[in-house]
Computed example of a mutant assay.
Amino acid sequence: MPEGDTVYLAGKRLRAALTGGTLLRGELRHPRLVEHDLAGRTVTGVASVGKHLFTRFDDGRSLHSHFRMDGSWHLYRPGMSWQRPAHEARAVLATADRVAVGFALHDMELLPTAEESRLVGHLGPDLLDPDWSEDHAAEALRRFTARGASEVGSVLLEQRVMAGVGNLYKTEVCFLRGISPWTLTADVPDPAGVIALSRELLLRNADRPEQSTTGELGRNQHWVFERGGQRCRRCGTRIRVAEQGDGVYARVAYWCPTCQPGPAPVPTRRPPRRR
């Protein structure tokens, strides 16, 4: 599932491309929304909240979308070929200058803008909120420490605690803080530092498609994420892989047993699943 910075960047690009434009084409191809036509509406803004996007219109409505595992928004110039099959398109929003196509968006809803909180009000503080303050940090810390009996790797992924962290940043935050993902949250030293680092990594990558946690740009610039079986960049120990969580909440975890001492399961031998 995309990280919060991926959704933030998508929202930023859509906002720059569509805001102020009147839709010449406003097709919603999602099964629940096919009867709606947004042509003639003016886009007043696009906002991201955690991993949720809201495209707002001048009639007081918003189009909500969530990427889930394989969704995305693409931007094109009129007449350009799409990079994904047309049958995967769930929304086509076109102005005179730009065409925004939402592909494989399983979760979509058209709702009054004033009711957006109905879909995101349960979330914890958004780590990429431009109005982030000490109050946001304090609330995230309160929610984080309240999960003291849960494993920190799972808590970092819980959007009700703080919104925006996905499996990549969960993995990298645990490595950089020197803690096993299976450490109980109550045993995590300096939980405020964990929250601050989570926000720092998201902010560092929010304005570019490349997600680096090592400070170097390029492909696979991570400390341990998706590097199972490779040597740790710090100590040379083999990176281990195991699954954390149950059922639909299970995710592949990567860790260095030397740099991240603490509780851990028996590592798996199978190839890790891709994001």
Results as ranks from 00 to 15, higher is better:
Pro2Val: 08
Val7Thr: 13
Tyr8His: 13
Leu9Ile: 10
Arg13Lys: 13
Ala17Asn: 05
Ala17Asp: 10
Thr19Arg: 08
Thr22Val: 13
Leu23Val: 04
Leu24Val: 11
Leu28Cys: 06
Leu28Met: 07
Leu28Arg: 03
Arg29Ala: 15
Pro31Tyr: 04
Leu33Ala: 11
Val34Lys: 12
Glu35Ala: 14
Asp37Arg: 06
Leu38Gly: 09
Leu38Thr: 03
Leu38Lys: 02
Leu38Asn: 00
Ala39Thr: 13
Thr42Trp: 06
Thr44Arg: 05
Thr44Gly: 07
Ala47Trp: 02
Ser48Asp: 10
Lys51Gly: 11
His52Lys: 02
His52Tyr: 05
Leu53Ser: 00
Phe54Val: 05
Thr55Leu: 14
Arg56Trp: 04
Phe57Leu: 14
Ser62Gln: 04
Leu63Ala: 03
His64Ala: 06
Ser65Asn: 11
Tyr76Gly: 08
Pro78Asp: 09
Pro78His: 09
Met80Ile: 01
Ser81Ala: 15
Arg84Ile: 02
Glu88Arg: 12
Ala91Cys: 14
Ala91Lys: 07
Val92Cys: 14
Ala94Leu: 07
Thr95Arg: 02
Arg98Ile: 14
Leu105Gly: 03
His106Ala: 15
Glu109Tyr: 09
Pro112Ser: 09
Glu116Lys: 02
Ser117Asn: 12
Leu119Pro: 02
Leu119Thr: 04
Leu127Asn: 04
Leu127Trp: 03
Asp131Cys: 12
Ser133Thr: 14
Glu134Asn: 08
Asp135Ser: 06
Ala137Thr: 11
Ala138Gln: 09
Glu139Ala: 07
Arg143Cys: 10
Arg143Gly: 00
Phe144Pro: 00
Thr145Gly: 07
Ser154Tyr: 03
Ser154Gln: 13
Leu157Trp: 00
Gln159Asp: 12
Gln159Arg: 08
Ala163Phe: 07
Ala163Asn: 03
Ala163Met: 01
Val165Glu: 06
Val165Ser: 06
Tyr169Ser: 01
Tyr169Pro: 04
Glu172Ala: 07
Val173Phe: 04
Cys174Thr: 10
Cys174Ile: 05
Leu176Asp: 07
Gly178Tyr: 04
Pro181Thr: 09
Trp182Glu: 10
Leu184Asn: 08
Val188Leu: 13
Ala196Asp: 09
Arg199Leu: 08
Ala206His: 05
Asp207Gly: 11
Thr213Ser: 15
Thr213Arg: 00
Glu216Val: 05
Leu217Cys: 07
Leu217Ser: 11
Asn220Gly: 13
Gln221Pro: 00
His222Asp: 02
Trp223Gly: 03
Val224His: 03
Gly228Met: 00
Arg238Met: 11
Arg240Gln: 14
Val241Asn: 00
Val241Ile: 12
Val241Leu: 11
Val248Asp: 13
Ala250Phe: 08
Ala253Ser: 12
Ala253Val: 08
Tyr254Trp: 14
Tyr254Asn: 08
Trp255Lys: 08
Trp255Ser: 04
Thr258Gln: 12
Cys259Gln: 00
Pro263Ala: 15
Pro263Trp: 10
Pro272Arg: 01
Arg273Leu: 14
